[in-house]
């Protein structure tokens, strides 16, 4: 699903965010990428949906080579990847359903099909009853669930969640992780970027630890090892 080979990213003037990263993620895996602030985990996540390009090396997602992808192909790639952020990235003037539909709208989806898909993903995240609420009328956890629902509309094979629990309390954070696990059980590959020790330890899944832009450890049923 994901193949990184000798990937480095250097920002000007000479800030090395990632150095010689090689990593393989199989379809259906749930991988946590952990590391302290500045370890390069967000840069790595951004590379997976072509928000950043590697300075050196190869990043392949499915059949897409991110290091060589044309700008015009990026939207097509992004429709095949679901992305979830810490700050939810919801439009305040749109309801939960409209926020989700927005992802389909920009892709030119038919209105009737759009309604069907929105209803379906809202059911997956358990928010059918709150479809017509605006983000300000939802809790942080619910907003993140809307964001996850939006990431699911194109039936992605890969979901990248960059600190999805960063703005949530422990209970809501567990809800979100539970939801991501459920999505993973349906066969979707999940890459979770986090620095939350409890979440990582509770998952009992593969953990890749980044330190100073390099992979410090990669353990199949790992734990949060940083102090």
């Amino acid at each position: 699903m994901i193949h990184l080979k000798g990937v480095s990213k250097t920002y000007q003037p000479n800030i090395k965010a990632l150095q010689n990263i090689s990593l393989n993620v199989k379809p259906g895996e749930f991988v946590s990428i952990v590391g302290q602030s500045g370890s390069g985990k967000s840069t790595l996540a951004k590379m997976l949906f072509a928000e950043e390009r590697p300075t050196k090396g190869e990043v392949v997602i499915g059949e897409w080579d991110i290091s060589k992808i044309k700008q015009a192909d990026v939207p097509t790639l992004r429709r095949q990847i679901g992305v979830v952020f810490q700050d939810f990235k919801l439009l305040p003037r749109k309801t939960a359903a409209e926020n989700i539909a927005f992802a389909l709208e920009v892709a030119g989806e038919h209105s009737a099909r759009m309604k069907e898909i929105v209803g379906h993903v809202l059911k997956i995240v358990g928010l059918e009853e709150k479809a017509n609420r605006y983000p300000r009328q939802l809790s942080g956890g619910e907003q993140q669930r809307v964001s996850i629902a939006r990431s699911l509309v194109h039936r992605p094979k890969l979901i990248i969640a960059d600190e999805p629990t960063g703005n949530l309390d422990a209970i809501h954070a567990q809800e979100i992780i539970h939801l991501l696990k459920k999505i993973n059980e349906f066969g979707t590959t999940v890459v979770l970027v986090t620095h939350d020790r409890d979440i990582v330890n509770g998952l009992k899944k593969r953990v890749v630890t980044l330190q100073n832009g390099e992979i410090a450890s990669d353990v199949a049923r790992g734990k949060y090892v940083l102090s």
């Binding site: 949906f49 700008q71 015009a72 939207p75 097509t76 790639l77 992004r78 429709r79 992305v83 990235k89 919801l90 439009l91 927005f102 992802a103 920009v106 892709a107 939006r150 194109h154």
Partner: peptide, 16 residues
């Protein structure tokens, strides 16, 4: 700007 960012994130092409 937020809307544009989200549009790009969810796969809107440049012309959209």
């Amino acid at each position: 700007r937020d809307e544009i960012g989200i549009m790009k994130l969810v796969g809107a092409n440049d012309w959209f």
